[in-house]
Nucleic acid binder design. Structure first.
Lengths: 222, 222
DNA sequence: TATAATAATGAGTGATTACTCACTCTGATC
DNA sequence: GATCAGAGTGAGTAATCACTCATTATTATA
């Protein structure tokens, strides 16, 4: 776990905002904070506990992150950005038209890609999910990134495939929500609720794609 | 909101364990606690704040609920039991065989029923969802009620309809999870994420049933 | 090696925390 | 009206909270 966290941390924090200097101790702090936040929740975690686990003086935390809340934001923000990154690329719609002739291919690709992301950042995503409802700053971030950017773009894709007659004519928002529920439901079960279970990811992905494709198909049942 | 909360509270606490005496102040305390827990989270809520909002001395809270954690449990436990109640009735499977010839009817009935429940107890369910991952007692309760009771029973129903050839042959757990994701995804979006949006519940329910039925149907797509 | 700048420290701060307890209040029973 | 039991109180407690700051250690540049 430490190795893994340090790996993506170094990666993330460095390419965050034009090469801000990040010290060893900063990495240790974020590392420890993520672990404890994910285990006991943000509010139930004390800064002294973080300092102890990070092997750092408590003052060091406040030297780099002025407040405890600031530390939370510094942890969640880059992950939130990376979470939506694949949807915010410039030529999203064009890539789609060219590369994915069928809705199914698009869904499978996205599913595999974002599921790998979830595995990689599971602890931070857990903290994110839990703290968004109680933190106005995170709420604003979430609204901007996920609601405004992602949902709106995916909506357009749904409309696109509806016009092609590949999926049913129903409110695009509802279609987006049902697909998102299927995927998020798996991600949560897979990595948060029962990560120790034996999972056959390939089989589950095939099943979900089938479920969603059939669910949105025009064909009548039976 | 207060009226609503008081209504189900009186109803709940009274038929909880053979008519334990519940005072006016106890109702006020639980009422205030639920509201603040739902708004800022359990750990971020102080007992003094609860006392203030309830119009009660802080000592009164600890007279009835020995600890803050105890108060949380006293709030969540009865709702957790009611949440799974429809699945735990004695002759669940028989009712099903007689009353619901088709999988679709069963799903629609459950969907409507549990969605009404979610609307009624939304604040407590929010608290429940947020605190289960961090509270061993609630975790144990959830495992017992939801995992052991509900999932196991619904699993058997899925297998039943699979044998009848009404739905696809896939791991029953996965089918249960995908249906649960669809429903929970709607409940969360409807009552927690965007409760102020204009929702057409009947249309959404029809759409979800269609989505799940098509998703699990045997027919090949296109 | 000297100097400047930044990183790191940890004892100390007032505020707040969950919880206690000696006490008062209230209403039912004899 | 005396007695008693439980409901309710609120000042008080030790512990812990996020955060500060004067001081020291480390590093980079000259």
């Amino acid at each position: 776990m430490p190795d893994q966290v340090e790996q993506w941390l170094a990666e993330l924090l460095r390419l965050n905002d034009e090469e801000e200097k990040v010290t060893e101790k900063q990495i240790k702090i974020v590392q420890a904070a993520v672990e404890i936040f994910a285990e006991k929740g943000y509010s139930a975690t004390s800064t002294s506990e973080i300092a102890q686990k990070a092997g750092v003086a408590e003052g060091t935390i406040f030297r780099h992150y002025k407040t405890k809340q600031n530390l939370l934001i510094a942890i969640v923000t880059p992950i939130m950005e990376k979470l939506v990154a694949p949807f915010v690329i410039r030529n999203f719609q064009e890539v789609l038209n060219v590369q994915y002739e069928h809705f199914e291919d698009f869904m499978r690709a996205m599913l595999i890609n974002r599921l790998a992301f979830t595995r990689k950042y599971a602890p931070v995503l857990k903290v994110m999910i839990h703290e968004i409802p109680f933190n106005p700053d995170l709420q604003a971030q979430f609204m901007e990134h996920v609601s405004t950017n992602v949902v709106e773009r995916v909506r357009r894709i749904v409309v696109h495939f509806q016009a092609q007659g590949q999926i049913i004519e129903a409110p695009a928002d509802s279609i987006v929500r049902m697909c998102a529920s299927t995927i998020v439901g798996y991600a949560v079960t897979r990595y948060l609720l029962a990560p120790e279970r034996d999972w056959n990811d390939d089989e589950e992905i095939d099943l979900m794609v089938r479920f969603m494709m059939h669910g949105l198909s025009l064909n009548p049942v039976r």
